[in-house]
Amino acid sequence: MTEPTNEAQGAGTSGSAPHLADTDQADRITRFWDTARPSAGRTSHGGAVGERSENVVPPPAWAFGDHPQLADELLALVLAGTKTATASLVVEYEDASEQLPRAGDLSILLDGAGDPRALVRTTEVETVPFDEVTAEHAWAEGEDDRTLESWREQHERYWRRTLAGTDHEFDPSVPVVCERFEVLYSE
């Protein structure tokens, strides 16, 4: 579930990430990007005159889930190499006025305290109805026993909780953004 903050995502990639308006956090993210960007093939000569903005401006930063403990649990799976995918609802991106992820996009993953911990690159994105998410995707998300059955149960529970009080309701045909990623750098 993913959480957008300059991005969006659900049961792995869209929750309540810390406010990036926090100057201290923005400084930590910028310092992390300065260290991590060579891993993404970006230049590292510090924003010289004429340097392209994608080399200097950090990519979107976000945390998994909708609370710090879940963010830390899911991030630990990423750092261990177990979690290489996440899922979000299309409506989460729409509500946050964010674009859907695309292959090649970079993101900075935050821990539950809002500290940057990993730089990832999206490698594949597919949008399918909830009830058509595959067992392969569930396995790649790396959560619980990694079965499709547990993925569906956990993600339905998560999205029912996070959609409560919004204009949206969970149903098995809801469009899910299934995203695969690779870790380029971690601390």
Rank of each mutant, 00 (worst) to 15 (best):
M1S: 06
M1P: 01
T2N: 08
T2P: 08
E3Y: 13
E3L: 13
T5G: 14
T5M: 12
N6H: 15
N6S: 15
A8T: 14
A8M: 14
A8D: 14
A8S: 13
G10F: 01
S14V: 09
S14L: 11
S16T: 11
A17G: 14
H19M: 14
D24F: 12
Q25P: 11
D27H: 14
D27M: 13
I29S: 10
T30L: 15
F32K: 06
F32R: 03
R37P: 01
R37C: 00
P38I: 01
S39P: 02
S39Q: 06
A40K: 04
T43W: 10
V49S: 15
V56Y: 11
P60W: 12
A61Y: 09
A63I: 02
G65H: 03
G65R: 00
D66S: 10
L70Q: 06
D72C: 02
E73T: 09
L77D: 13
L79K: 12
A80V: 14
A87Y: 03
A87H: 02
L89W: 06
V91S: 09
Y93N: 10
E94G: 09
D95Q: 14
A96C: 15
E98G: 11
P101Y: 00
A103F: 09
G104N: 10
D111M: 07
D115N: 15
P116F: 06
P116Q: 10
R117D: 05
R117W: 07
A118N: 01
V120N: 01
R121I: 02
T122V: 08
V125I: 04
E126Y: 03
P129Y: 01
P129R: 01
F130H: 01
F130D: 03
D131K: 05
A135K: 06
A135C: 06
A135F: 08
E136H: 05
W139F: 11
W139G: 04
E141T: 05
G142K: 04
G142W: 01
E143D: 12
D145M: 03
R146W: 10
R146Q: 11
E149W: 10
E149F: 11
S150W: 06
Q154R: 09
E156F: 05
R157H: 08
R157I: 03
W159R: 04
L163V: 10
G165I: 00
G165M: 03
T166Y: 11
D167P: 06
H168S: 12
D171H: 08
P175T: 02
P175N: 03
V176G: 02
C178M: 02
C178G: 00
R180I: 00
R180W: 08
F181N: 02
F181K: 00
E182S: 08
E182T: 07
V183I: 05
